[in-house]
């Protein structure tokens, strides 16, 4: 067993199927106190991993969903000028207008730093934001502290959070940023792994349905020129849909009758390509 500094070792969670390689990397990153950067196709469970770690190690999870226009300072803290202006005008609140600190609200990173226990901080889809965002974050990651300029106060991390950072590789991340992270790319699960994942979500699924659905799913993923290939999430939803349909028999899938393609393919072009090839039975 690896010791990762917290005396706890990550070994999976109730709704997450973990492969051994990833578990090792998570534990090493925690022990080295380095952020873990996860890349991979959408739907390979990058975000789910952070939830699973939090659940498994019983730490609170704080999620920072990065948006394209986001500046780092928003993730650290916010100075609520508008409320202060309002209070100074009308003076009907119990806040002390001359004390700026009362108008400072912690952002997600700030919350993780000031929390009383060690937390898991998920920074989701960091590549959405400008490179400035990453560059500004370098300091915070290095020092584990940040300044609130308005009140000239430094916030230090009480407990170093477990950083999980995900990226969909829309943009390349900067080299200095990469240098501070450990990196893992989650490959798309193979059919065997997928079977396990399906079983975790649908413990009493008919095995013929599961097998046929997974087989059809992988054949559909092979289609050329599909822009957004269906991922795990789509498969799970699709199986849910198939399960609900009283008229559906798993045998039909093997025969080439594939219902509810819209659950799997969400771009109209992709949907068309998929339904054409299903109709032509080229796939089966």
């Amino acid at each position: 067993m690896l010791d990762n500094g917290s005396g706890k070792t990550f070994s999976g969670a109730s709704k997450y199927v973990l492969d051994e390689e990833l578990a090792r990397i998570v534990n090493i990153s925690m022990a080295l106190e380095m952020p873990l950067l996860l890349k991979g196709e959408p739907g390979t469970g990058k975000t789910m991993l952070a939830h699973a770690i939090a659940e498994n190690l019983q730490m609170p999870l704080i999620v920072l969903n990065v948006k394209s226009s986001m500046k780092l300072v928003e993730a650290l803290y916010q100075y609520d000028t508008l409320t202060r202006l309002n209070d100074s005008r009308f003076g009907d609140s119990r806040r002390d207008v001359s004390n700026i600190e009362e108008y400072i609200r912690m952002g997600k990173i700030g919350q993780a730093f000031t929390a009383d226990t060690r937390t898991v901080l998920l920074i989701d889809e960091i590549d959405k934001a400008d490179t400035d965002f990453q560059d500004d974050m370098l300091d915070v990651l290095d020092q584990m502290e940040f300044d609130i300029i308005e009140i000239d106060k430094t916030i230090r991390a009480k407990h170093r959070p477990v950083f999980i950072i995900t990226s969909n590789a829309k943009k390349d991340l900067s080299d200095p940023f990469l240098g501070r992270c450990n990196f893992h790319h989650i490959a798309f699960p193979d059919p065997k792994m997928m079977r396990k994942i399906v079983n975790v979500h649908f413990p009493d699924i008919d095995s013929q349905l599961a097998e046929n659905a997974i087989a059809a799913f992988y054949r559909l993923r092979e289609l050329d020129a599909v822009e957004k290939r269906p991922a795990t999430r789509e498969l799970l939803n699709w199986i849910r849909a198939l399960n609900m349909d009283p008229d559906f028999r798993p045998r039909d899938l093997a025969k080439g009758d594939v219902p509810y393609l819209g659950v799997l393919f969400k771009k109209s072009q992709d949907y068309q390509i998929a339904s054409n090839s299903v109709r032509r039975r080229r796939l089966f």
Binding site: I28, G40, C181, N182, F183, H184
Partner: peptide, 14 residues
Amino acid sequence: DFYTASRAILVKSE
């Protein structure tokens, strides 16, 4: 362990 550790630490892109 060495395979995964050194890849996670040294190699930063898939």
